[in-house]
Design a binder for these strands. Sequence first.
DNA 1: ACACAAGCGGAGCGGTTCTCTCCATTTGGA
DNA 2: TCCAAATGGAGAGAACCGCTCCGCTTGTGT
Lengths: 225, 225
Amino acid sequence: MTTLDRPLRKDAERNRQRVMVAARELFAEEGLDVTLDDIARRAGVGVGTVYRRFPDKEQLIDALFEERIAAVAAIANDGLDIADPWTGLVHFLEASLELQVVDRGLKQVLLSTTHGQARVEDARDTIEPIVIALLTRAQEAGVVRDDIVVHDLVLMQHAIGEVADYTREADPDVWRRTLLVLLDGLRPDRRRPTPMPGPPLDAAGLLCSMQHWGGSRRRSSPSGA
Amino acid sequence: MTTLDRPLRKDAERNRQRVMVAARELFAEEGLDVTLDDIARRAGVGVGTVYRRFPDKEQLIDALFEERIAAVAAIANDGLDIADPWTGLVHFLEASLELQVVDRGLKQVLLSTTHGQARVEDARDTIEPIVIALLTRAQEAGVVRDDIVVHDLVLMQHAIGEVADYTREADPDVWRRTLLVLLDGLRPDRRRPTPMPGPPLDAAGLLCSMQHWGGSRRRSSPSGA
DNA sequence: ACACAAGCGGAGCGGTTCTCTCCATTTGGA
DNA sequence: TCCAAATGGAGAGAACCGCTCCGCTTGTGT
């Protein structure tokens, strides 16, 4: 549909790329709520140009995030390649959260059905079986408690992702502390706490987080004036 | 300011109450984003009436949530009354989350500075010292790991509150599972997992959650047509 | 019973936001 | 050279929201 019907004029193709790059950046920085006008502005093209290439916003999201979600699936696969079942699971949880911290839109696409289309949905469905493998392997090895299921892990991803979002401005790494406690809770037997990965959030940091958190709407200038 | 200047006419006072009740209900059900028009409609009065009693939305929120936040503080105090330090801390975390599940606005008021005014802020500041007492008591008793601080607990509240919000429609109790894992992670030494408080989220439940989650904006009819 | 201040409702103003269309103009390439 | 392809960006259209204003109603003190 893109490359087959007609080779697309040279400048048109270049603009298409620019739009995709700009969209990727803005979605990552601000989340999926950014305006197509914002994207057009950052891409240095007119809105009309964006709409000629992508019928609507959802199509653009769909096109862009298929690959991002695939990256998450790849991380899960990497986890399976790690010999130690516990390390493998932790790798997935940590690394996929790192992706979400860097890309705000990714979280929304992963956790909501209201964004993206078929391609995104398919990509999403790819992940679950791999995570199940990761989890049951760990459980069979006796390093993760038996009473949890994949969906518990999804909820945990959501929980920690939210912490990361909340504290993003104040300290982009505190979420690791919360994750660590959760991970310690996942073990069936643990004699000592795992050492914390960094310092806690201080008072100023919490205040900063509270100020930046909208609870619903955010206020900020995406890029330029 | 309310009862002193002038006794307020009988019907006026009755309407004031209606507005407060309606606002409390709507803020609880939908969060702080509801329109004052919605509140007026549910109260069965005109918007003008609302604005005559409450200069603006923030004042209304401030007036209403001072008491709700005090309830959270009360819960923390109840926790201190419990003899066992661990049970006391758990009581606070669980009960305050239960309040947040029932009242969506409460979470926003607790975690954001952009809502409410001085009264809400004061009430919020009341809580922290009590929680610190709760936490250090548990740590001194050796039932909570030493490396966490109050703000870690705040972040955990946020994390679990978000899970509760996410899964609200599908299963209003699954958040307890996530909380339980987190709690198990808080212990300095644990030989066996604490039994889960309920069944996990099934596939349909997750789908339902995904559909209801906006990530930013929600869509729904507050009450009437 | 009456008069008038207090209170009322809700249309609508002024503002913002966001998606998407339209068309006069520019530009690539056979 | 010439025209289909591509462009840009003003602005239509459709929400939403906080708040005001004013003609009408109602409680209340005398």
